[in-house]
Amino acid sequence: MNLTVNGKPSTVDGAESLNVTELLSALKVAQAEYVTVELNGEVLEREAFDATTVKDGDAVEFLY
């Protein structure tokens, strides 16, 4: 899956889609429990991480 992460191209191997929690784990995001996630310009509530799917071509920003 090809994404733009914090403005840079990134690839997650072996996945066509992941939820936000899985993406944080796959990318080994440090202190993931404290990060705010913006997906395609929309800031996500932490409670929505498990239910929100990240797909090929999406833009993700991790805000600390």
Rank of each mutant, 00 (worst) to 15 (best):
E61F: 12
V5T: 02
E42I: 15
S10E: 14
D50Q: 08
K8R: 12
V35T: 05
N19R: 06
K28R: 10
R46M: 06
V35A: 05
L23E: 01
M1Q: 02
G57Y: 04
A26V: 12
F49M: 05
F49L: 05
N2D: 06
L3W: 01
A32W: 14
Y34N: 10
Y34H: 12
L39Q: 01
E42W: 09
Q31A: 12
A48V: 10
G14N: 10
V35K: 00
E22R: 06
V29P: 05
A15C: 13
A26N: 06
A48N: 13
V43W: 08
L3Y: 02
D13R: 13
T53P: 08
V43L: 12
A15Y: 15
A59D: 09
N19G: 03
A15L: 10
N6W: 00
V20E: 01
A30V: 12
D56T: 09
T4Q: 07
V29R: 00
D56C: 06
S10A: 15
T21W: 14
L24M: 10
A26K: 09
G41Q: 03
E61L: 12
T11C: 12
L44W: 03
S10P: 01
E42Y: 11
L44H: 02
G57K: 04
E38T: 15
S25P: 01
A30S: 12
T52V: 10
T53G: 06
V54W: 01
L44Y: 04
A51T: 15
V37E: 00
F62R: 00
P9Q: 07
N19S: 15
V35E: 04
E45Q: 11
A26D: 03
T11N: 08
V43N: 05
E47P: 07
Y34C: 14
K8G: 05
E33M: 09
A48E: 11
D56H: 07
A26Y: 15
G14Q: 07
E22F: 03
T53V: 13
A30D: 13
T36F: 08
A51C: 13
K55T: 08
T36D: 06
L3Q: 02
G57H: 05
V12C: 07
G41N: 05
V12W: 09
A51N: 13
V54R: 01
E47W: 13
S25R: 10
E45C: 12
G41H: 05
E47Q: 08
F62D: 03
E47N: 11
K8T: 08
A32V: 11
G14D: 07
P9H: 09
S25L: 14
V5C: 05
V37N: 01
S10Y: 15
L63H: 15
D13L: 15
T53I: 15
N19E: 02
V20R: 00
E16W: 14
G57S: 03
N19C: 06
M1D: 01
T53H: 12
L63T: 14
L27V: 03
F62L: 13
N19A: 05
E33D: 13
S10H: 15
T36L: 11
K55V: 10
E22P: 00
L3G: 00
N40T: 01
E42M: 13
T36V: 13
E61Q: 13
L18E: 01
E47T: 10
L39N: 00
L18Q: 03
V5G: 00
D56L: 04
T4A: 05
L24V: 05
E22K: 07
P9M: 06
T21Q: 07
L27Q: 02
G7N: 05
V37T: 01
T4W: 11
D50C: 08
T11Y: 15
E33W: 11
E38N: 14
A26Q: 08
F49G: 04
D58W: 02
L27P: 00
E47I: 07
L23Q: 00
G7D: 04
L44N: 01
A15F: 15
E45A: 12
E38W: 15
S25K: 14
L27A: 00
E33A: 12
T52N: 03
S10M: 15
L23I: 05
P9A: 07
E16V: 14
L18P: 03
N2R: 12
V12F: 10
Y34K: 09
V54T: 02
A26I: 14
L24E: 03
S17L: 09
L44P: 01
N2Y: 10
S17H: 10
D58I: 01
E16R: 07
V35L: 11
A30L: 10
S17E: 10
V43A: 08
L23C: 04
D50K: 06
L24T: 01
E47Y: 08
M1E: 01
G41I: 04
V60I: 13
E45Y: 09
E47S: 11
V5M: 05
Q31S: 12
E16F: 14
A32M: 11
G57Q: 04
L39K: 03
N19Q: 05
A15T: 11
E22G: 08
G57P: 02
E33Y: 08
A30G: 10
F49C: 03
V37M: 04
E42V: 15
G41F: 04
V35S: 04
A48H: 12
T4L: 13
L27C: 07
T36M: 11
T53R: 11
V5Y: 01
S17K: 12
T52P: 01
G14K: 08
K28V: 06
K55H: 13
E16N: 13
L18K: 04
F49Y: 11
M1F: 13
V37K: 00
L39H: 04
S17C: 11
A30Q: 12
R46F: 08
G7E: 01
N40G: 01
D56R: 03
